[in-house]
């Protein structure tokens, strides 16, 4: 555990160091790339709660990532056009304020997860993987065929949304905001994992029959974990859409589900900083290897294979020189 603590410190310190250096050298692109790492890590932190701690291999987290993105896109587009959003008798004003948008993203993705989870958590194993994928694909095709918000072309937002007291157009300020959100979520998930609930979730992953025989319903525990997991990934989606000032059905595609899963597995399943390590490595590979060869995904695949075969604890586990809970 000690060693993993230092690895995490070096990882987080390294990322902050890169950003400070880029800021001093006036390299906004590196800052933006680092912001992307942080947002992907946040999406991974969400999935890690379900997949790592709950053993729930969701292959549909792009649904929540994309719904978060659309929560941002829809609210901002209504604010942009000064037309309130009409939901039957309900009239919602658009918003260009990140806190408002984030709350909406959290609520929408949590609600979707409640519906998807309450059905899919009745299955397990391969069926769970397939049913979460199926739900995500349904939402993906719905987004493509729904013309109101750009359909296949997606939604463009002209100006990045605001946050009280910050200039979010300044890359370094936006990065720090994203990093703060990641920090808060990492802290909260870490506490959750070590709480009563976290204990029940971990136990339900290992032996649901035993948990049931103690009067604790594994289904309920998993459902709550799935909803919280989706909410975090949804929040990451809203922020990611803000980074790009753009949301499209691509955010909902199964490839995105796969990528979020790659962050988690590469970095280390159920590891505190696993998603951050995974996302950082992914971006580094995509950017630098992608610059050298069009086949960078081949090398990513190979790396993933090696990690799965020889380092079950992901990079963090490998560096820490111990297996999970070791």
């Amino acid at each position: 555990m000690r060693r993993e603590f230092w690895i995490n410190t070096v990882l987080i310190g390294g990322l902050l160091g890169v950003v400070v250096l880029a800021w001093l050298l006036d390299e906004p692109f590196i800052i933006t790339l680092s912001t992307k790492v942080v947002i992907f890590a946040l999406a991974g932190v969400g999935l890690n709660l379900a997949l790592g701690h709950g053993g729930l291999v969701s292959f549909g987290h792009a649904a929540f990532f994309g719904l978060g993105g659309y929560a941002m896109g829809i609210l901002a587009s209504h604010a942009q056009s000064f037309e309130p959003l009409q939901l039957g008798p309900l009239v919602i004003e658009g918003s260009k304020s990140m806190p408002v948008i984030w709350l909406a993203a959290l609520a929408v993705s949590a609600l979707a997860a409640l519906l998807i989870g309450s059905l899919s958590l009745r299955t397990s194993g391969v069926y769970f993987i397939m049913i979460t994928l199926a739900f995500a694909q349904m939402i993906y095709y719905f987004a493509i065929s729904w013309p109101a918000y750009g359909g296949e072309d997606g939604l463009l937002i002209y100006v990045r949304n605001g946050f009280p007291g910050l200039n979010t157009l300044d890359p370094i300020q936006f990065f720090l905001l994203c990093a703060a959100v990641l920090g808060v979520c990492l802290f909260l998930v870490d506490r959750l994992v070590k709480s009563r609930f976290g204990m029940a979730l971990e136990a339900a992953r290992q032996n649901p029959q035993r948990v049931t025989s103690l009067g604790i319903d594994p289904y309920k525990v998993r459902l709550v974990a799935f909803v919280l997991s989706a909410a975090i990934t949804g929040l990451a989606g809203a922020i990611y859409a803000d980074l790009n000032r753009f949301v499209s059905p691509a955010m909902l595609s199964w490839q995105v589900s796969g990528e979020i899963m790659v962050f988690v597995i590469l970095g280390g399943v159920a590891r505190f900083a696993g998603p951050l390590a995974g996302a950082a490595l992914f971006i580094v590979l995509e950017h630098f290897l992608g610059g050298l060869t069009d086949f960078w995904q081949f090398w990513l695949g190979l790396l993933l294979l090696l990690v799965i075969l020889f380092a079950r604890g992901g990079i963090i586990g490998f560096l820490a020189g111990e297996r999970r809970h070791g």
């Binding site: 009563r196 204990m199 525990v221």
Partner: peptide, 24 residues
């Protein structure tokens, strides 16, 4: 920890998310 889980089941107080169980 196994016994703590059992006690938790007996108390029916599972949905506590913040306090560390080691400090419970």
């Amino acid at each position: 920890q196994n016994l703590m889980l059992a006690v938790m089941g007996a108390q029916q107080r599972t949905f506590r998310f913040f306090k560390r169980f080691t400090q419970d």
